[in-house]
Design a binder for these strands. Structure first.
Lengths: 124, 124
DNA sequence: GTGATAATGATAACTCGATATCATGTCAAT
DNA sequence: ATTGACATGATATCGAGTTATCATTATCAC
């Protein structure tokens, strides 16, 4: 169980080359540069599998109808969502912990921050 | 243009009584306590309308496939999502703007912050 | 190389939130 | 009370995203 296929390698390559989380649809298009005949089903199958093996992780962004995926090896970071082109970028800003500013009893394990606005391509 | 209906009043009442953002489906069920025959289409029509009149606003939360709605009279705030009981709380913390910390060209209009952890009830 | 079988690709089918349709009901100005 | 425009409710429809089906292909242990 677990054969290596060129399709899966293509999908891995796509995530190594990407600076931002990707939708399944984007993965499909990008990976077709390596394997033109790649099909949708294979993309979904492999995204699921690569998450199970810990190579990828899911990213859930507000307002996005679909789940995005990114390499699981990335450091803690947040996301910038361009309201014009709808792409999502990784950004390094982080507001830090909030536990001290919350009412007693609230314990923060994790936080998600999403910035919305215009990316450099769309500002121009 | 603009008649008052008991359906719309019921939907208003639901939001006044709610301490958290609601899905259209939740609004439907809750408002049916006032108007049992209330239909889905009416909920969607009125959510849209109430947003246009400025009474409600939309809230987008990660992991939610649908748009949520809340009263527009609430001050700027963020949300705390309890991972145990799955409830969403309003919290007053705010990380402020980030534009200065971003690469040039990124322009921030808005941000969403979601904290995940345990609420007072679940910490005990 | 061979063969068992895992993986793929094309496509149909499904999910589910949201919208469109349209006959019926209701609000409110008169 | 009348009436016409607006709102409603049941249902069909839409559409994006995802999954299921299944015949075909490709991987890899041997």
């Amino acid at each position: 169980m677990g054969r290596n296929t060129e399709q899966r390698d293509a999908i891995r390559a796509v995530f190594e080359a990407s600076a931002r989380p990707l939708k399944p649809e984007e993965v499909l298009v990008l990976a077709q540069a390596f394997v033109p005949a790649l099909g949708v089903a294979t993309v979904y199958r492999n995204l699921k599998r690569l998450c199970e093996t810990g190579e990828l992780r899911t990213v859930e962004l507000p307002g996005h109808r679909t789940t995005l995926y990114e390499s699981a090896q990335l450091d803690h970071h947040h996301h910038f969502h361009c309201q014009d082109c709808d792409r999502v970028f990784d950004v390094d800003v982080c507001p830090g912990s909030f536990t001290s500013q919350l009412p007693p009893g609230f314990q923060v394990n994790r936080h998600d921050l999403v910035l919305y606005g215009a990316c450099p391509d769309c500002t121009a």
